[in-house]
Amino acid sequence: MADLSAQVQEPFDLVRLSLSERVFVKLKGERSLVGVLHAYDGHMNMIMSDVEETILMVEPEEEANGVVQSVKRNLEMLFVRGDSVILVSPGSR
């Protein structure tokens, strides 16, 4: 197995390991995605399927005393533009 790590020469090689696996992606704007990664490029644009998007919404303090609310939605297929990606990590498995 020693030779396996040799494959990893750049960060993207790690992302590659998660191809067609479930990944967690954190996006700008308090959004996060969990879905199967199908493709990515050098800009971290990604194609994901079976995605559950979670949007964190914080109500204004005056109204709801800073209540945090999360909105979820499911998407069959999703293109994620790379400039909004903050983090990609292997999904829990």
């Binding site: 030779d3 790590s5 040799a6 020469q9 750049e10």
Partner: peptide
């Protein structure tokens, strides 16, 4: 990011 090709020196994987 340019990472040198490590294939030359067999890296040691802890797990192995």
């Amino acid at each position: 990011l340019q990472v040198k090709d490590l294939t030359g020196s067999p890296p040691v994987t802890p797990t192995s």
